[in-house]
Write a protein that binds this DNA or RNA. Structure first.
Lengths: 336, 336
DNA sequence: TTGAAAGCGGTACCAG
DNA sequence: CTGGTACCGCTTTCAA
């Protein structure tokens, strides 16, 4: 591994000069520049990251806490999310260090990475209402952006997808199809995104004078959706549509209905949310709502790097609109 | 951010002494040690990672190239893989830097990270027959372990799951159930793991005097499995079992068969490989082969850290046995 | 336009 | 057992 000294010697200049041309930080005569470049090339020179970090007090690394993979997870959204983060970060000149929050004190992991100067900022995903990590980072004044909102008052930067709007779109679609008895399957009451999707459902019905009387809750599993559908059908036989908070739950609901003689898409319709890969392969393919993943990731990195490099007080709150994807589960013509 | 100097001042000792107690590298009197620890605690001290890296020429970071998420990917294996890597790496005192190989020259990314001293080693996944990355790393003599084998001759460390053995188990199970006309759906001929699973199928049949005459190939998609099943049924109406190289393909095959009047698990049986979460939710649940993910990840980190810390010439090649998981797609009783 | 040298925060050798 | 200090590789100020 050649150092800046080797390059300087090879090019017959000082280390300062090499630094200038490598970083483009100072004007250097064309002739000298060429010589340095050639020497650097020849010696396969790359500035040592640690030395540079130490000197400039910047790691050029972003921290990202991997969400705990849920057993039976059928999505792959977070995988694409992580991939998108790394590619966009790379374009901005950053690497991503991923870490897993160990047991007890999640915040402790964040604190140590900050104290060690390991990272210049964090991307925080999987936020919950009163997110400890966000409270901590806000208090520390350490750069971060979250994917998803929380109930925390202090201003901080986030990028989120408007689940409220997503469900408004879903309900508008169902109303247009003539449905009036529309049920909803939500998550347990604890997540910001779950609750705002539900609110979108409630308000959309309310705005046309319909009531949201049939609501079930379920964990984000196929089994959960299955039994939620059972309860709805049993307790509210009048319903003709079930809007679900997620595709996974919707798939469970469709399964229950199909097994019990309903032709989903005709007798009764079902919608999901997320547009997971599987949603187009189930029978019938699922009407759902898709999140602008690439835009989310781009914004996340853009906001964070701006905060780090330009203006540490920069705060940006972005709400992106999701898109309704209509498939056979709401407009099924024939369901074999 | 307090430095070692601050701690030294606070404790009334030299920086050397602080370093000794923080790292436990030299004996220090109990009284001094206590004082230093207290000061460090009080000042919230954490050694600066860059400074330490620079001095010790070690990054305590491992590089991991994220596989490109395939559209329509239904698994989530690689997500759990990445999570497992991070947690095990953390236990060994390493962070994981993930990166995505940009377009043209994949190897270039590896080279630059090495030259910059960013990482102490690599975990290479998604290997192919003549993997450029592995050839490069072997030539460089840079520490790495791969998940998966290749055709490369030079010795290098890997951890892999024995797909050959997995298919032997599958076929043994099918033979036991009385099947004699067993087809196989493989991947296009290019992956080591695909080919060795296929060889397991061939040899298992061969060893009992049966021929492997019905083989189709398909990309790793549901659609691929669907049409592969169609071809098999059309060209080889005598078959009573289809062993697939992956769950995704198996799910496609099951779908074709179910749609065409077959009761999978009774009229005809199907097996997969990987035990993706979805495989237990399809109808009928899939008999498949599960990989010892946690053991894989543990070995990977263990071998790599050993190579980095103890003995750079250490080479270890581990082949782990997968486990057959029997579900209704081979022993279905009722397939409502 | 170029270079000498200080210093980022640690580690570890060597002396006491 | 404790401490002074050189040095890891780079950036950047200041002077020439």
């Amino acid at each position: 591994m050649n150092t800046i000294k080797d390059v300087a010697r090879e090019a017959g200049v000082s280390v300062a000069t090499v630094s200038y041309v490598v970083n483009g930080t100072k004007k250097v005569s064309a002739e000298v520049e060429a010589r340095v470049l050639e020497a650097a090339q020849k010696l396969n020179y790359r500035p040592n990251a640690a030395a540079r970090s130490l000197r400039k007090s910047e790691a050029r690394i972003l921290g990202y806490e991997l969400p705990l993979p849920e057993t039976g997870d059928i999505s792959s959204f977070m995988q694409r999310f992580a991939y998108g983060l790394t590619t966009h970060a790379a374009e901005a000149g950053y690497h991503i260090i991923s870490f897993a929050a160990v047991g007890e004190d999640v915040v402790q992991t964040y604190r140590q990475m900050i104290l060690a100067g390991r990272v210049d900022g964090f991307i925080v995903a999987g936020t919950n209402w009163h997110d400890d990590r966000i409270q901590f980072l806000v208090k520390q004044g350490f750069p971060f952006v979250s994917f998803g909102r929380t109930a925390i008052e202090n201003p901080y930067s986030y990028v989120d997808v408007d689940g409220y709007d997503g469900l408004q779109q879903v309900i508008a679609h169902l109303l247009e199809l003539g449905h009036e008895n529309i049920a909803f399957v939500g998550w347990p009451k604890d997540s910001f995104s779950g609750d705002s999707r539900e609110q979108g459902y409630i308000d959309a019905l309310d705005s046309v004078g319909l009531a949201a009387q049939a609501v079930e809750r379920s964990s984000n599993t196929i089994e959960g959706g299955y039994s939620a559908a059972r309860k709805l059908i049993t307790n509210h036989p009048e319903i003709t549509a079930i809007a679900c908070v997620s595709d996974v739950i919707a798939i469970g609901a469709v399964r229950y209905l199909s097994r019990h003689g309903y032709h989903v898409g005709q007798d009764i319709v079902v919608t999901g949310f997320d547009d997971i890969p599987l949603s187009q392969y189930v029978t019938p393919p699922l009407t759902t709502v898709t999140q602008p993943l690439d835009e989310v990731v781009f914004q996340l990195i853009d906001v964070l790097t701006h905060k780090i490099e330009e203006d540490s007080s920069y705060t940006s709150q972005t709400l992106l609109k999701p898109t309704l994807v209509i498939r056979d589960s709401t407009i099924g013509v024939s369901n074999l």
